[in-house]
Design a protein around this nucleic acid. Structure first.
Length: 422
RNA sequence: GUGGGUGUAGCUCAGUUGGUUAGAGCACCAGAUUGUGGCUCUGGGGGUCGUGGGUUCGAGUCCCAUCAUCCACCCCA
């Protein structure tokens, strides 16, 4: 073999593509139901967009971006996430001039240079929504409800919601100091990763998986206790809205989001069916993002769902595979040219019947075998004998019964049979 | 970037202390049925044993390297 797919990428073969189509359909219907409109942005952007919005010191920017220089010496990057691009498009196309708030959704491939593992790929796919222009806590609730609604619509059963508030620059700065002060005492007991996190991003120490570190965090000050008045009120309002709407959730004061632009609400939806990468949806509010990339002061909130992970979760939960939409009719031929058979096949197609025929000159037996394997319901036998009488034999592949039908009425006959079969 | 597991047919795997021409099931193709799928029977095609090097009279088997893949860490969807 000359070459293989690059590491961390994969082919989606027809069988699996049926799952993808199902997901894409649910995405569209759910978003329509909630009044969100689709936006499509390029898969690559100026590198600067991500370094500025996602944050220079985040892992995504520091070590996971697919960055390249094009022939015109431009620094470009394959998008590692969707929010920055949508925020850029919002600004660039003056969507603040449209009816507010602007509610958008997107799907598509994202790229991160990371070691592949269960539920993690270098090219992966996200479905996300973004709302610009409202600070109402009810919007936070709606966005969360949309995600939960989507998972339920897919037939997913086991998933749970965690929420937190990561504050804003006003309260996060002082809290960071308080946290570092506390951690300073424990520094000798923390793992090497946490020692590094202590310097670079102390909030991350909170959700370290090591028991030894968690043990040292018993009396750690929590951000939710140090929120400024505005953030605290907003967090209370979000929790209150979820309560009132009957949404089950857990407050996880150690939930930290990895991207710099998050403010206030942060949430995550987890599927226990998955391995270590159990997060199927992550999101939150980003009230300063638009301003960060040079726009006016417009608040926003959104989430991203990992399509591959949702697919894994559906399979782990044994959600039944979507029914294959098989071809309805196979035109088998005996002593008739493939072009003649194609002629009849086209007539059926023009009448709206999914149909195919043989191109391999196989025996009738082999043709029927093919039709059987592809789950085709009706085989039309076009043979010299029948053709003389102006007929074709229609074989119901389910019970093997056969019926001679006049060619002029064949499409109508098949259409009626198929309708009845429904 | 770090640690561990696994690489033999399209798929799942077997292959003895290193020993002739590397096997099975499923899948695929054909025949039994000269124009009829599924079930059965019979036959057939398909492998540089991941790759490169080493040890040996002899390597799928042992050693080293490398690549791929899986799982976990970091981080994230």
């Amino acid at each position: 073999m000359l070459t293989r797919v690059p590491r961390g990428t994969r082919d989606i073969l027809p069988e699996e593509a049926a799952w993808w189509q199902l997901l894409e359909e649910k995405i569209r219907t759910t978003c329509k139901l909630f009044g969100y409109q689709e936006i499509r942005t390029p898969v690559f952007e100026h590198t600067e967009l991500f370094t500025r919005s996602v944050g220079e010191v985040t892992d995504i920017v520091a070590k996971e971006m697919y960055t390249f220089t094009d022939r015109g010496d431009r620094q470009l990057t394959l998008r590692p996430e969707g929010t920055a691009s949508v925020a850029r498009a919002y600004l660039e196309n003056n969507l603040q001039a449209k009816a507010q708030p602007v509610k958008l959704y997107y799907t598509g491939p994202m790229f991160r240079y990371d070691r592949p593992q269960a539920g993690r790929y270098r090219q992966f796919h996200q479905f996300g929504v973004e709302v610009f222009g409202s600070q109402d806590a009810a919007v936070d609730a709606e966005v969360i409800l949309l995600a939960l609604f989507f998972f339920s619509a897919l037939g997913l059963k086991e998933f749970s919601l965690q929420v937190n508030s990561v504050g804003c620059p006003r309260c996060r700065g002082p809290y960071r100091g308080k946290l570092q002060e506390y951690l300073k005492e424990q520094l000798s007991g923390l793992c090497s990763d946490c020692a590094e996190r202590y310097e670079k991003n102390p909030l991350r120490v909170l959700d370290c998986k090591k028991k030894s570190c968690q043990g040292l965090l018993a009396g750690v000050p929590l951000l939710t206790d140090s929120l400024c008045h505005e953030c605290e009120e907003h967090f209370k309002a979000v929790c209150g809205a979820l309560d009132e709407l009957g949404v089950e959730y857990e407050i996880n004061p150690r939930l930290v989001r990895g991207l710099d632009y998050y403010t206030k609400t942060a949430f995550e939806i987890i599927s226990p069916a998955l391995g270590a990468q159990s997060s199927i949806c992550g999101g939150g509010r980003y009230d300063n993002l638009i301003a960060t990339i040079g726009g006016p002061d417009i608040p926003g909130i959104g989430f991203a769902v990992g399509i591959e992970r949702v697919l894994l979760a559906l399979q782990k939960e044994n959600v039944p595979a979507p029914a294959e939409n098989a071809t309805a009719v196979f035109v088998a031929r005996a002593g008739v040219s493939s072009v003649q058979a194609l002629q009849l096949t086209m007539e059926l197609r023009r009448a709206g019947l999914p149909a195919e025929t043989d191109f391999l000159g196989r025996s009738l037996k082999a043709q029927l075998k093919y039709a059987d394997k592809k789950g085709i319901r009706y085989a039309v036998l076009l043979g010299a004998e029948e053709l003389q009488k102006g007929q074709a034999a229609v074989r119901d592949m389910r019970d093997g019964t056969q019926q001679a039908v006049d060619l002029p009425g064949l499409a109508d006959y098949l259409a009626a049979q198929l309708k009845e079969a429904e």
